[in-house]
Amino acid sequence: MKIDFKINGKPTSIDVDPNMPLLWVVRDELKLTATKFGCGQAMCGACTLHVDGEALRSCSIPAEFVAGKEITTLEGLSKSKETTDGDLQLHPIQQAWMEEQVPQCGYCQSGFMMAAAKLIKDNPNPSDDDIKNGITNICRCGTHPRIIKAIKRAAELQNQKP
């Protein structure tokens, strides 16, 4: 089945089984590998990405669901506007993740960052409890304390922006 959608701003068309999980469309067909496989059962959140602004677990969404929709993965989270040093203009979440040095093995971080980006968009001043209850992704390296700090820092950065 031919499915048309936008991913990270780019109009895209693919021909796949309509039931193929979106995760494998993104990773194997489109070669965008920041979005990770963790459990395949929507329990760990490693595969979190945005579809029309909602944070969803892509391992459990069929490809046909995204027809006509806009997908954002971690690769598309920061604006592609080049700054003077050639770097991307980092999304506040990625900026805060750098400042707080969150990742260890790094494998689950894409999913956490995508869930966190959605959280601070909906809630510009999240409390610790908002964060703890709002994000149910799994990390085994124990980066949790820094994730909480980074989300609060990202909210600050977001609120400073004009």
């Binding site: 979005t35 990770k36 971690l74 690769e75 790094g106 960052m113």
Partner: peptide
């Protein structure tokens, strides 16, 4: 010192086995 693998892990460019490929690869 900041981790030297920080940026690729934040930008999503860090490559794990799961992200690796060889030409003509099957699953």
């Amino acid at each position: 010192v900041k981790r030297i693998d920080l940026k690729p892990k934040v930008m999503g460019t860090a490559k794990y086995t799961m992200d690796s490929e060889l030409p003509d690869m099957l699953y």
